[in-house]
Amino acid sequence: MAKVKALIMTGYGINCDAETKFAFELAGGEAEIIHINDLIKNKSLIKQFRIIAFPGGFSYGDDTGSGKAYANKIRNNLSEEFSEFVSGDNLVIGICNGFQIISNIGIVPGYSKLGEGDVALEHNNHGRYECGWVDLNVSENNSVFLRGIKSLHVPFAHGEGNFYAEESVMKRLVENKQDALRYSKNGSPAKGEYPFNPNGAMDDIAGITDVSGRILGMMPHPERYLYFCQREDWTYQKEMLEREGKKVPEYGEGLKIFQNAVEYFQ
């Protein structure tokens, strides 16, 4: 059977394209990095793919607000193709800057027409870019990407990850079970407590899905935790596992998200 193909968007400062491509490949898929200008020039390219990933990065340097300019570019030039893609049985994932982009495009949570966002990722409440690791709880949801995942230990790095939605939107997210990923502290809700919730996100939201479960946006970076030795505390974990006579794992928790995407088409 032919491997499923993922389109990895790039250009204008997206910078996690190579590792995102590798994540899909390690998960058993095929992936191709395509510059947005090449896609605009040859719009039918999109038809070759069943998955589109918007990787992390600093598109347009976050100027005028993260993700905004890249989302405008999609809306101005590729809205038809994107509408068609997301209405089909295809998958989209937006990670970090990619989440900022797809929430500006509006495909997560997907309550308004393409090009109109319903949620925002605001400046971190402490006012600074920050990189570290967080724990996430996965609530009951219908996301393809999160099948079989109950929690995630995963790195993050952003200056604008502070999730915000109006009360009515938040309510709808919860009702529809789109509120998939939340920052946690020792398995319990982080309740806004820094550094467990690293940015002040409303209701500890770290990621949301669309209604269908085929589109996922998340601030943390699962593609940065494909191998165990990428974990921030792996030297400690390794010692503990060895002392308990247990095997040290090879892979990291982020891989499962990409495996789920690939398996969806098998």
């Binding site: 910078n15 996690c16 190579a18 590792e19 590798f22 992390g56 600074r128 870019y129 920050e130 990189c131 570290g132 790195p155 790095a157 970076h221 593609e223 940065r224 494909l226 030795c229 990428q230 921030e232 505390d233 792996w234 030297t235 400690y236």
Partner: peptide
């Protein structure tokens, strides 16, 4: 250390801030 992204490119193994 924490405001410089050291995880991008997925190449970080031992980190600028170590241990619990």
């Amino acid at each position: 250390s924490k405001q410089f992204d050291h995880e991008v490119l997925s190449n970080s193994c031992t980190k600028p801030l170590q241990g619990k």
